[in-house]
């Protein structure tokens, strides 16, 4: 049986060295390029006709725009407007990574903790910097919710700080773990199909079919969760609470 983790191997396609740092173009990088290309084509070709009454494709492009725009508006408010392109890019990037990763023999770069962590830490640092620039030292009142008795402060402040610092960790592990678990399960059950033969092989195949449907849900849901949490963190930084 094939190793279900073999699908997560990074294979170098074009070895590149940049000042002693390995910057090789790998299968992960390839699918990042594929995702960016697919997103760009999806949006620009869909909007090429830019009709007043949209067709199906244009509707999908507009729908994704409106979806993220309303998410930013509802969760961050009008002041979140400048960050809309970033949040939109984030959502589409993760969504396309997850969905393209479901194509057999492709690679899911969101199943790598380093990728999700890099995105999460970028969001975390960005949000923190935005909060400090906007509110200066008042930003740190985030760690002491208003209306809390001062006696509680010594207990609450460490808890709030820990929960704040664990944001990038939970954000990155949630996406990575979901992707990796789903793909591993698919592979494990797929690995049973042929060994169980023509009679028994149908059962794991049926499970795989069901799991594939489930994975589509997870792919979209996790992109949504990552994005909406980013919006909530951004809201904390912009409006405090």
């Amino acid at each position: 049986m094939a190793n279900p983790l073999a699908q997560f191997e990074i294979t170098t396609l074009v070895p590149i060295q940049l000042g002693g740092v390995d910057a090789s173009f790998t299968n992960s990088g390839l699918f990042m390029v594929v995702a960016v290309t697919a997103i760009t084509l999806f949006l620009t070709l869909g909007m090429r006709a830019h009709r007043l009454v949209p067709g199906r494709w244009q509707s999908m492009a507009e729908l994704s725009y409106e979806f993220i725009a309303s998410m930013v508006r509802d969760n961050v408010g009008t002041e979140g407007r400048p960050y809309f392109p970033f949040i939109f890019s984030l959502f589409m990037f993760i969504l396309f990574a997850n969905l393209i990763g479901l194509v057999p023999y492709s690679f899911t770069f969101t199943s790598h903790i380093i990728v999700t962590f890099a995105m999460a830490i970028t969001v975390f640092l960005g949000v923190t910097v935005i909060g400090i620039i906007r509110h200066g030292l008042r930003f740190f009142t985030l760690f002491l919710p208003s209306g809390v008795p001062m006696v509680m402060a010594p207990l609450l402040i460490p808890i709030e700080i820990v929960s704040y610092l664990s944001r990038p960790v939970s954000l990155s592990i949630r996406l990575f773990a979901n992707m990796m678990a789903g793909h591993t399960m698919l592979k494990v059950f797929a690995g049973f199909v042929v060994p169980l033969g023509i009679l028994g092989g149908w059962a794991p195949l049926a499970v795989d079919v069901a799991l594939t449907g489930f994975e589509f849900l997870v792919a979209v849901l996790q992109a949504y969760v990552f994005t909406i949490l980013t919006c909530l963190y951004l809201n904390d930084a912009i409006n405090l609470h």
């Binding site: 990074i10 173009f25 992960s28 990088g29 997103i39 392109p85 790598h112 890099a118 995105m119």
Partner: peptide
Amino acid sequence: APQVIWLAITFGVLYVLM
């Protein structure tokens, strides 16, 4: 390193395109 570098490149390009 290669993953983070290519993530930065591709996401940067995506951001600019968007």
